[in-house]
Design a binder for these strands. Structure first.
Lengths: 223, 223
DNA sequence: CCGCATCCCATGTGATACTG
DNA sequence: CAGTATCACATGGGATGCGG
């Protein structure tokens, strides 16, 4: 396998040797959201062959990028601190790739972890810190993510059902349902008002005017 | 080849589909320094098979990342504006991979383009803007790079021989010879004074005290 | 069920040779 | 100079099996 090295004494070449294999960065992407078990990763990457997932997990371990940890009854994979530092790389890649997203091809999916990272990619801390702390519950096709923004900080966590949470928060709150069209709002191709009138986004509860704030807080340039 | 897609509607997955193939990001790395001809790229990536180089150049063209341009008498490849935006990705990767560089393995090379990008990766604009404009001529094994720093800007260009240039510049100037040990200076593993006394770096002309400034201006954390 | 290991085949990659 | 052609081999993809 010496033939698979690039033969260059260089940071970029070294990085690509470590995380350039197919699927490796997508595994890292999902682990950036939090520790995951083998079966979680498999769920988040339905098209990865199990042997490849196994192989990547081993390679990433021996490179010191991830480590196995015990998790209640079973085990999980977690990024080491070295692996955590790939966050910049993954966010840069996401920012660049977002421009080439285009329309979803048939069969393409959005997973909770990939969407969580998309929100982190699109998050604009400099703008957020000028706005009041706000909680957004986004129901995207078949899963929900709660986005808590306070000052220039963002926290993303999954939630089960929207339910009657509105009054649970002191801070401004809105919950909405959407699908891949959320990307158009983030790209600015669709304004908050147009997203509502075209039913791309439907308010479930809370203050619908907060959708404007959402679009300011989460923004990426498209093509 | 549909089987080689990740099946995810996501910026990171899209990015990895576009520039995740072997060698692709190293080609981009070299093109970030400037337009290059086929033979330039081959020289900068001695271990790439010619058919793979051909294939990548075609793929990168049809992805809109690079384009062919006429160059004096012949042709060259150049990043499109979409491709240029990979700079963040490549710099992040370089910053991360630098930590894992370790010692050069036998046969590993440093090319002018890879080193130019390493300098751009290590460049600290916030620190540089507090220091006087300075020109550094670095002779690294078999090639030379001139680094011109003014305010928070960096320009890297190749040069042929150090010669009697010292008085050519009004601004502070130093020229030196080094090898892979330059990375230890950048990593802070070796101080400017120790680099000189251990002969890791030899001053050719100019003000040797500027090596301190160099180490401040170009810095990356190591392991 | 979770966490893989095995098998087989398609495709990508690498080395070398060769051509417009 | 700027690639193509060919062939051997390594890796990836998909299905299936299997122990704890």
């Amino acid at each position: 396998m010496a033939a698979r090295e690039y033969g260059q004494f260089d940071g970029i070449a070294t990085a690509v040797e470590l995380i350039g294999e197919r699927w490796a960065l997508l595994i890292v992407r999902d682990l950036l959201v939090g520790p995951r078990r083998y079966s979680d990763l498999k769920l988040g990457l339905p098209k990865i062959p199990t042997n490849v997932l196994s192989a990547r997990l081993k390679e990433l371990q021996s490179s010191g990028i991830i480590e196995r940890i015990p998790l209640h009854h079973g085990l999980a994979y977690r990024l080491t601190s070295f692996g955590q530092q790939l966050e910049d790389v993954v966010l840069s890649l996401g920012r660049w790739g977002f421009q080439a997203l285009g329309e979803p091809k048939p069969g393409e999916i959005i997973t909770p972890d990939s969407m969580a990272m998309t929100f982190r990619t699109a998050f604009q801390p400099a703008i957020a810190r000028l706005l009041p702390a706000t909680t957004y519950d986004a129901q995207i096709t078949d899963f929900g993510l709660r986005l808590q923004v306070y000052s220039d900080q963002l926290e993303v966590e999954p939630f089960e059902s929207v339910s009657k949470r509105q009054s649970e928060f002191d801070s401004p709150y809105v919950s909405f349902v959407t699908d891949t069209d959320i990307h158009k709002l983030i790209a600015g191709e669709l304004s908050a008002t147009n997203a509502l009138s075209s039913r791309s986004i439907k308010i479930l509860s809370g203050d619908q005017s907060l959708l404007q704030r959402f679009a300011q807080t989460f923004h990426l340039e498209a093509a």
